[in-house]
Simulated scan of single mutants.
Amino acid sequence: MNTDAAPVAPVILGIDDLRPLPRATRIARTSHEGIRLLREHREVFIDELWLDHDLGGDDSIMPVVTVLEEAAFNGHPFQIGMIFVHSANPSGAETVVRVLQRWNYQVRRTTAESP
């Protein structure tokens, strides 16, 4: 048995059109890119997922939220340690938190600079 295995780096994903999110290991800038990023990590434990509601123009995080909802509805939710919602849009952020908590995801409203 090899006890010298290197520790696995945390998977921290961010979906935000503007913020740099320095803790993130991968960042998507649109909802379309965000959905692709989630699908790439479908069978991987995601330690943190950072979500911004407004993604520029008419784009928002809601298509990504729908993917997370559908996965939970189908009995195979994404395995995510904590989802952080860091939007400057208070009503949009509260909607995201409320929807995802309904599907038993761990969600917290925060600022993008918080750990």
Rank of each mutant, 00 (worst) to 15 (best):
Pro7Met: 11
Val8Arg: 11
Ala9Leu: 14
Ala9Pro: 13
Pro10Val: 12
Pro10Asn: 14
Pro10Thr: 13
Val11Gln: 05
Val11Thr: 14
Val11Ala: 08
Leu13Phe: 05
Gly14Thr: 15
Gly14Cys: 06
Asp16Phe: 05
Asp16Ala: 01
Asp16Ile: 07
Leu18Phe: 09
Leu18Trp: 12
Leu18His: 06
Pro20Trp: 06
Pro22Gly: 07
Thr25Arg: 03
Arg26Asp: 15
Ala28Val: 12
Ala28Tyr: 06
Ala28His: 03
Ala28Gln: 06
Arg29Tyr: 03
Thr30Asn: 04
His32Leu: 08
Glu33Trp: 03
Gly34Tyr: 02
Gly34Trp: 02
Ile35His: 00
Arg36Gly: 11
Leu38Thr: 08
Arg39Trp: 02
Arg39Leu: 14
Arg39Gln: 09
Glu40His: 11
His41Thr: 03
Arg42Lys: 13
Arg42Glu: 15
Phe45Leu: 10
Phe45Met: 13
Ile46His: 02
Asp47Gly: 09
Asp47Gln: 12
Asp47Arg: 08
Trp50Asp: 13
Leu51Cys: 05
Leu51Pro: 00
Asp52Pro: 05
Asp52Phe: 05
His53Gly: 11
His53Asp: 03
Asp54Gly: 15
Asp54Glu: 13
Leu55Gly: 08
Leu55Cys: 07
Ile61Lys: 01
Ile61Cys: 06
Ile61His: 07
Met62Asp: 07
Met62Cys: 08
Met62Pro: 01
Met62Trp: 11
Pro63Cys: 09
Val64Gly: 06
Val65Arg: 02
Thr66Cys: 12
Thr66Gly: 02
Thr66Ile: 12
Glu69Met: 11
Gly75Gln: 07
His76Met: 14
Pro77Gly: 14
Phe78Ser: 10
Gln79Val: 10
Gly81Arg: 00
Gly81Trp: 00
Gly81Ser: 08
Ile83Gly: 00
Ile83Gln: 00
Val85Leu: 01
Asn89Met: 14
Pro90Met: 07
Ser91Ile: 14
Ala93Asn: 04
Glu94Val: 00
Val96Arg: 01
Val96Tyr: 07
Val96Thr: 13
Val97Ile: 15
Arg98Ala: 14
Arg98Leu: 11
Arg98Ile: 04
Val99Asp: 13
Leu100Lys: 03
Gln101Asn: 09
Gln101Ala: 04
Gln101Lys: 12
Arg102Gly: 13
Arg102Phe: 11
Trp103Leu: 05
Asn104Asp: 09
Tyr105Cys: 12
Tyr105Ser: 04
Tyr105Met: 08
Gln106Arg: 13
Val107Leu: 00
Val107Arg: 00
Val107Gly: 00
Val107Asp: 01
Val107Glu: 03
Val107Ile: 07
Thr110Met: 05
Thr110His: 02
Thr111Val: 08
Thr111Pro: 06
Thr111Leu: 06
Ala112His: 12
Glu113Ile: 14
Ser114Phe: 13
